[in-house]
Structures are given as structure tokens and as C-alpha cells.
């Protein structure tokens, strides 16, 4: 299930203050400490891992606001 892969990527690249394992799929990643710098690194890691490219219309704050939002975006790129 990609959400576990996404959680893993967020754990490695988002440099959040709290425990990533404790995040709910809908938890607000920005409130958890995601910044514009870490968003970019999360995005690049997601592109490598899932072999996708984020088009400009998905490069927006809302795409990265939760694990579920990221999963939905990846899903839309893989279909």
C-alpha cells in the first residue's frame, strides 16, 4: 500500500518534530512541521520512488498537506 511508502518517505525527508508513525492519514503535515524546503525534498523523493512526475497543477500546498492527500495525488498520476 503506497501510504506506508509515503509515510516512510515523509519520515526520511520531512524532518518533522514528532513521531511520523503516529500520524493519521488525514493529519495536517504543515501543522506537524512540514516546511517549503522539506516539501520539495519530499516531492523529489516521491518522484523517484513512484517513478512519476508532478505536473504544475499538482504543485500546490494542498497536494502535500497530509499522507492521504499525497497518496491521492500519486494515485492520480499512476492511472
Amino acid at each position: 500500500m503506497p501510504i506506508d511508502d509515503i509515510r516512510d518517505i515523509v519520515a526520511r525527508h520531512a524532518r518533522l518534530a514528532g513521531d511520523v508513525a503516529a500520524l493519521q492519514p488525514e493529519s495536517d503535515l504543515y501543522a506537524a512541521g512540514l516546511t517549503s524546503l522539506t516539501t520539495v525534498h519530499v516531492m523529489l523523493a516521491l518522484e523517484d520512488h513512484f517513478d512519476v512526475e508532478f505536473p504544475e497543477e499538482l504543485l500546490r500546498r494542498q497536494t502535500f498537506e497530509s499522507l492521504q492527500a499525497i497518496a491521492d495525488a500519486i494515485e492520480s498520476l499512476r492511472t
Binding site: S36, L37, T39, V40, M43, L44, E53, F54, P55, E56, L59
Partner: peptide
Amino acid sequence: QSALIEVALRD
């Protein structure tokens, strides 16, 4: 800030 976006963006 722009430099970060430049890395991510495909225009």
C-alpha cells in the same frame, strides 16, 4: 524561497 520552487517546478 523562489529557488526552492524552481527546483520543484516544471513550467
